[in-house]
Computed example of a mutant assay.
Amino acid sequence: MTGPLDGVTVLDFSRVLAAPLATQALAELGATVVKVERPGSGDETRGFEPRLPHGESAYFFAFNRGKKSVTLDLKDPRGRDVARRLAARADVVVENFLPGVLDRLGLGYADLCGGNPGLVYVSATGFGQTGPDRARKGYDTVFQALSGVMAMTGEPGGPPSKTGIPVADMTSGLWVLVAVLSGLAGRTATGRGRHLDVSMMDVQLSLHALNAARLFAFGEDPVRTGTEHPGRVPSAAFQAGDGGWLHISGSDRHWRPLCRVLGLAGLAEDPLLQDNSGRVEQRDRVMKALRGAIAQHDRDPLVKELLAADVPAGAVRSVREALADPHTVARGVVGEFTHPAEGPFPALRTPLRETAGEPPAPGVPPMLGADTDDVLANLAGLGGEEIEGLRAAGVI
């Protein structure tokens, strides 16, 4: 079964997490993704934990499925020449080197678009192609700190905290994907490619849409609120009597049904609490009453009662619980691939599907350099003697 991006060729110079997440999605949506790696070591995440019994990295598996691996020394002029030949046949280039690095190697957009005017070239960097920090390296948790995301995460009065997932890397990867797809759509309309600039810092700042709205509206610099919503009551996690946690997020129309389920008739009838603004003003009183009432119930039965009353609620699950949920299973969120060294291994599918078809099957992460000969012969047009000469010289 072909995917919607069948026929699109992506030359992937990226490594680690953000941009590889995007190129993995492109691969599992049907694109041919050629991952260019350093001879001998490859993407550094091949050595990251968690390591599997035969030495492969589950970290690498998570972001590099379905790609073809080519080893190529870009420091060698012969390697750069091969890279240019590959780019001449590609629809898309994705790279996450610091600004100017590929330009100095003759592999920047200006170098490649002359021979391939339809090329969509996406540069994914920490701080973008312009600005005083453009040459600064970036890391997920540092972006969380610099952008204000870390300052917003944690309990009131407690220390700042990182998020439970690498949110800077993963949200930036999604914007790399948006950049590729928008570039391809623009090429269809105009016939020309373009150079697209994705800054991880810009992406993190864009996540503050609601926080910035409060800052712009009230001059209020948002602070940590734990699981509570700064502008809505109730919207928070509560501990049930059996020790489990649930999250409730209700609006005005949910207030009375919530109070009925919890036996809080006084609150339900209190005229000061009928709209959200009143509940926000009396947040401490409302939250104390809700916590006390919820502590009298076990988590799962209470969640069922709340859902039956049309109150938005859900158990706070562990990752294991979430992946084993019947709805998750029915949707086929967890798939599997068979790796040549590690054998069968589970994988989270790319979360996009056609309504008439199955979700994309997880691709197989490539062994280092496994596709070098095939790609150089069929995409770059090299002959067998040329390939063997490059191998003998350590270029591939």
Rank of each mutant, 00 (worst) to 15 (best):
G369I: 02
G100S: 05
N211D: 14
S182E: 04
G126C: 05
T125W: 04
P351N: 04
R78P: 00
A293H: 06
I387L: 11
D140M: 08
G266L: 00
F61A: 06
M170E: 10
D6P: 09
P166W: 05
W245R: 14
D221N: 09
T225C: 14
S14Q: 05
T125A: 13
D103F: 02
L21E: 03
K75A: 14
E49D: 13
T163N: 11
S182G: 14
S161L: 15
P359H: 05
Y121A: 06
G42M: 01
V10Y: 07
P160D: 01
L98S: 11
G100L: 01
R194C: 13
Q296D: 13
G183D: 02
N378S: 13
A240T: 05
G381H: 12
T350R: 06
H54I: 09
G191E: 05
E388V: 00
R38T: 01
A90H: 09
E269P: 11
E228L: 14
G357Q: 03
G183N: 02
I165V: 15
S182Q: 14
G157Y: 03
K68W: 13
V33G: 12
V233H: 12
H254Y: 00
R78D: 00
L323A: 09
E321L: 05
R224C: 10
T45V: 03
F61R: 02
S41V: 13
A58Q: 06
L86H: 07
G158C: 10
G126L: 04
A213S: 09
G241M: 06
R89W: 02
R51A: 07
A110E: 15
T355W: 15
G266C: 07
D43Q: 00
